[in-house]
Design a protein around this nucleic acid. Structure first.
Lengths: 98, 98
DNA sequence: TAAAGTACTTTGAAATTCAAAGTATAATGA
DNA sequence: TCATTATACTTTGAATTTCAAAGTACTTTA
């Protein structure tokens, strides 16, 4: 049980951390919203959302808004639980600094 | 200026986060101490310390203790400043969750 | 003095990251 | 109306990073 035991590999990247962080406080976020909020390129964002999707931490819904495709993301129960644990692990590391 | 702007790429990995975290609260840590605290393999730890060293965030001193080689690590001023900034960025993400 | 242990370092395969290019459709403008 | 530009992603593959196994150079132990 080391100090980094509860750091989740899947959240251990700034873009994925950002995606989760946005999705924890917003019920949904679409591709462009995430792209803008995180300053990621299209391809980069797509691969990170795919990684989180594969881990079943986020859910993807594709729809059309008017005639435009729109992809929106939301967290899963599993994702929310995992993220909370990750945040707690970070907090515990941070508190050691104080 | 996105929510992940101040997340430092070099600290954005659990092992390097762990190394810095240990070195922030201990003046020195040697190879084995870090290895044990972080549960890293030798090769893995070596490459992460090398990355932090290259970024001039930690300093490496090699000496002999008795007849055994001993490598000890400590933070640099630059490293401490960068890590503080990183921790503040994490805190700000965490606080958004509350 | 052979075998096992210590303290790393090197190596290279595997996994990950990333942006450029691609796809498909929609909107715009001439 | 038809070419051009824009939108919303996806695919691709080169570059980088991660990782553990194997290697090196001793030292300790039996």
């Amino acid at each position: 049980m080391s100090i980094i035991t509860n750091i989740n590999k899947l959240f251990d990247h700034r873009i994925r951390l950002g995606i989760m962080s946005v999705l924890m406080v917003n019920e949904y976020a679409d591709f462009n919203m995430l792209k803008e909020l995180l300053g990621a390129t299209d391809g980069n964002l797509a691969s990170h959302t795919k990684a989180l999707e594969k881990g079943e931490y986020i859910k993807v819904e594709k729809q059309f808004i008017g005639r435009k495709p729109n992809t929106r993301y939301s967290t899963t129960k599993l994702g929310r639980a995992a993220f909370k644990k990750h945040i707690e692990a970070l907090e515990s590391i941070i508190n050691k600094q104080k």
